[in-house]
Design a protein around this nucleic acid. Structure first.
Lengths: 232, 232
DNA sequence: TCATCTGCTTGATAAATGTCAATCGTTAAC
DNA sequence: GTTAACGATTGACATTTATCAAGCAGATGA
């Protein structure tokens, strides 16, 4: 583990408050690796030997069943993934692959569990992080079960707009076919959904999205903090 | 809080390992209440003042948006709910109502957070519980995104069968219209799905389900431990 | 016993979504 | 510069799912 990567990791909520000694102990057994794009880092069902941290690049978490595949989440720097599997010492529920050239830190799961037991600050941080993850997935479930694909897309655009600073124009941060998978629909359906949103003042050219009638789109999308607010 | 309720609560994984002193401290501010059926205990969006424990009866967790409603989970004795909201001191993401006459224990959220910080065993238990909850929701998301409603129903039946002891016949533990909502479909669609499963040897009379050709149903349902196994 | 209620089922129809195949447009390699 | 590759789009069509309305059946209560 190169010294230069430590500050990034230390800066994560998860490791921010813990003692220096315990942090060093965690890092001792860890290492950092660079991966090219489209490399499968973990496969669902595998034992969870490492807690992963994306230092740069991005990682897609996805799941498969019966020949179908769906995108579950995108992990961007700097954050961890598969924390729950690490804590429970249970198999991964999702696979993970790099989307681009990425730098990943790997911390042995058993070290995470060991330090958890002796560092109350670290324990507190893990609980907060897990609770956050849990609530995100619950919101996602509500999005899937309560909304049509057109409504999901509208609210995704509003969230993305907010995240990009709130301006009338912004870029989609992922390929459309991956967006379709994230939203639980086919690329063809997404393409038609974009077209349908034209009547609410949404114009899409490539990855660029322009919202000309904010109020109108919001009236249709009906965003709710209990589904769309990532922070709480 | 009556003395007679303490053993049930103490027996929960969550409270099993913690010190007697801290357990008593938690219980001191808590109380127990009996509710009739169909009473709304919590409403999504409310601040999370109490961690709830179902001592008897059952509670449905559900969510609403734009006039629609969906059933998220059923909580049966003896277990807790809305742990994540309590930990994060964030608003509830789901509403909860009693399905039948129920006995509920209420523990002030701030006490839970306070004891968490001073009792490592309790902290460990909370993390394990949260990780479990998180993984359950992830599995549910996979179920929703990767399977058709007929496949979801089939796998639900296989899970329920296993849970009921594995025999060829068992009872549905909930109303069909609620089951439909849990599976993310309409009651009409569920009714037709049951009929479609007749060709795989599933017979339903009232709440009674009989599976005459186990292998055939499994061949269709393709259950996967990474979606359908609740224990891991 | 009868009436009523409620949940379940059924049929007809509509809407949403997926599939398949072809085409377009951009990118990237040669 | 040309060509190949790939993602996005479009059209035609099939499937899945929802909606609406009506009927049915077991439970409840007078």
């Amino acid at each position: 583990m190169p010294e230069s990567d430590l500050p990034d990791i230390r800066g994560l909520h998860l490791f921010e408050e813990m003692s220096d000694e315990h942090f060093r102990a965690l890092m001792r057994g860890s290492y950092v690796q660079n991966f090219p794009p489209q490399i499968e880092l973990i496969e669902e069902g595998d034992p969870s030997d490492f807690l992963h941290i994306v230092l740069s690049g991005s990682v897609e978490l996805f799941s498969s069943w019966n020949g179908r595949e769906t995108s579950m989440a995108t992990v961007r720097p700097v954050s961890t993934f598969i924390l729950a599997a690490t804590i429970k010492d249970a198999p991964y529920l999702m696979s993970g692959r790099t989307l681009e050239k990425s730098r990943i830190a790997l911390i042995p799961s058993q070290d995470v569990r060991a330090v958890f037991d002796i560092d109350a600050k670290f324990a507190r941080a893990i609980v907060t992080e897990l609770a956050q993850c849990y609530r995100s997935v619950v919101k996602n479930t509500k999005d899937l079960k309560l909304r049509t694909s057109l409504e999901r897309l509208s609210n995704f655009l509003l969230r993305q707009q907010k995240y990009s600073g709130g301006g009338a124009e912004f870029d989609l941060p992922l390929e459309k076919r991956r967006l379709a998978s994230v939203l639980g629909m086919t690329p063809e359906n997404l393409s038609r959904a974009f077209k349908a949103l034209q009547s609410y003042g949404v114009k899409v050219t490539g990855n660029r999205v322009a919202i000309s009638d904010q109020k109108d789109l919001e009236r249709f999308a009906k965003p709710s903090p209990l589904i769309d607010d990532y922070s709480t």
